[in-house]
Nucleic acid binder design. Structure first.
Lengths: 164, 164
DNA sequence: GTCTATACGCTGATAGAC
DNA sequence: GTCTATCAGCGTATAGAC
């Protein structure tokens, strides 16, 4: 709290005029951006895009978040583990629902020919989301990389692989 | 230190008869397994496998580590950030060298037709290693998954992608 | 090599003056 | 809404008995 206070030019005690506790501060910083992923998922689900287009739109959203809100994504990925009680359960639920929706899109895509039915959906989604979650750390070291090129590359690597 | 001591049935103070400090304990736990990745990379580099086979061998090694030494990999991935001083720099170097070697294999593979020359090597390697680093957490929730099937799936997802 | 006792810095948080 | 003063708890680590 002392470090955070120093960052905004006040003393630690003054933070408690704005947030009830350190935990409440963490919750306010985490949950709002976390909900952005859920909202994007709802938009995608309610669209009439193909499964392939839906996954591409979600990937683009992850890339945009990593690029435009690098620090916020870093906070979510690194510090969700410090959430407690009700809010922690709520975050877990958001995350689990997101993954379930993601998998469902892939499953449907498997049946209509846009995704390879031989791949395990669990493994594939884990791989895609692992990469997208930590993309902020890659971008932190490659800030000059063109955003549209990054989107294109992520699409190719995550969907078509690195081989010929 | 109290928790660790409790885990082995002694008091926290007694740990200091075996390790000079908490930091030293962390270093001993981290650096030995971290070197296993470097050793495997040396073996692969000195082999006469094709680039594609080299990457496949490295992927298999990551999967084996995640499955057979789940807790150790979790420790490395989560707690390397708490390393200090000389050892921290040493860990960074190991990791950086590993990534450089990994990228070099892909680059060579691009020129002789086993990897897609249109993909950005940095992005591809980041994606592959992100997945492999966090695989331990997936396996923690899917311990019953067959190891050979997991190897096969990882190979397919990371190298050929999820699309048709 | 284990224990108890203890030092001491850092952390989150509160009380109360301004 | 900010500050100073202060607290209680926890963390790592040491001293010294057994």
């Amino acid at each position: 709290m002392r470090h955070i206070a120093e960052g905004v030019g006040i003393k630690a005690a003054s933070i408690y005029n704005h947030f009830g506790s350190k935990q409440e501060l963490l919750q306010d910083l985490l949950m709002l951006p976390a909900n952005l992923y859920t909202e994007e998922m709802q938009t995608v689900k309610n669209s009439n895009l193909t499964p392939r287009e839906k996954i591409e739109k979600l990937i683009r959203h992850h890339v945009r978040m990593a690029v435009e809100h690098t620090d916020t994504v870093a906070l979510i990925v690194a510090d969700w583990a410090h959430l407690e009680g009700e809010t922690r359960a709520q975050f877990f639920q958001l995350r689990e629902d997101y993954e379930t929706d993601f998998k469902e899109i892939i499953e449907i895509g498997k049946t209509n020919g846009s995704f390879n039915p031989n791949i395990n959906t669990d493994v594939a989604v884990f791989s895609i989301l692992s990469t997208l979650r930590w993309l902020f750390s890659w971008y932190n070291r490659n800030k000059s990389f063109d955003v549209e090129e990054l989107e294109k590359q992520m699409m190719q690597v995550l969907l078509s692989g690195t081989c010929i």
